[in-house]
Design a protein around this nucleic acid. Sequence first.
DNA 1: GTGGCTGCAAAATGTTTGCAGGCCT
DNA 2: AGGCCTGCAAACATTTTGCAGCCAC
Lengths: 166, 166
Amino acid sequence: MAITRNSFKAELNSKGWRMTPQRETILQVFQTLPRGEHLSAEDLHSRLSEKDAGISLSTIYRTVKMMARMGILRELELAEGHKHYELNTASPHHHHHMVCVQCNQTVEFDNDSVLKQGLKQTEKSGLQLIDCQLTIYTICPEALRMGYPALPDNWMCSRAVAEKHD
Amino acid sequence: MAITRNSFKAELNSKGWRMTPQRETILQVFQTLPRGEHLSAEDLHSRLSEKDAGISLSTIYRTVKMMARMGILRELELAEGHKHYELNTASPHHHHHMVCVQCNQTVEFDNDSVLKQGLKQTEKSGLQLIDCQLTIYTICPEALRMGYPALPDNWMCSRAVAEKHD
DNA sequence: GTGGCTGCAAAATGTTTGCAGGCCT
DNA sequence: AGGCCTGCAAACATTTTGCAGCCAC
């Protein structure tokens, strides 16, 4: 049931498309990504440049969008202004996200009942469910104490500061 | 509990900010928006230009972002590439969205149990819930029949075509 | 009166696209 | 061999920002 290099190639070919080194590399990155992590196009690009395989940004954008449409990747709108991608594992590995609007820290959590609600809803409307994402926007106690949403310019919570020093 | 011009002004002043004609106008638009509708910054801009009150796009962007941070508006990432806003009515008017990835048609639905799950999750982590959105991505039967995701270039489902003729 | 607010224009960001050449099937 | 695919650069869409003047407090 999980995606493999070969099933990916078969699915591509069945649509008249092709397996290429770039597509294989990108699939591998997601296959070896620790559970709970997700990458933006830019993340992928710099990660691949560091190693050997430089893949152009355009190709990355084209590829992740295609893989998302094929149902292989899941497209997430978590941080402001750009999308993240992760392998689209079906239930029972279906999970959701909780993201702090101040520091963008994301925590994933499992909740199968949400997917059930989603399926109920789409069946009722005669539509096919592609994905179902519960995103919870929160703000951390520290930012609240500092007077959010009237925070000083450039203020960051300690978690966000720590993240900058990675 | 619902937002009013006066409670808005009070909240602004408490933070050292000001009530202005632009902010009042934008609040009014959302207050009189039929339930289930949501506007992008561009929507707001053209809607206000048609009438009398021309408000610059920058001010609109600044204002809706501020109002979202204050918890007055809810920021939605439904269609590709731009955000929509709606009044952030608390439970029991809390609702969620189902959007077709082909034609972008959006249907809202109620589901209080989702909000309950969200509250449970944030409490567990000691965070304050700002918003909680279940977004269901679907694809309509018509696009499936046409071979999605390998659709002909520029193909649109009949609902999407109808939408273009508005 | 003062400092926040607006409008304008310019910049920045994230993403898409046209095209010439290359490689998978 | 044909046509899909890539990389590059340029275009694009949306959103953000610097700044001078304005207006709510």
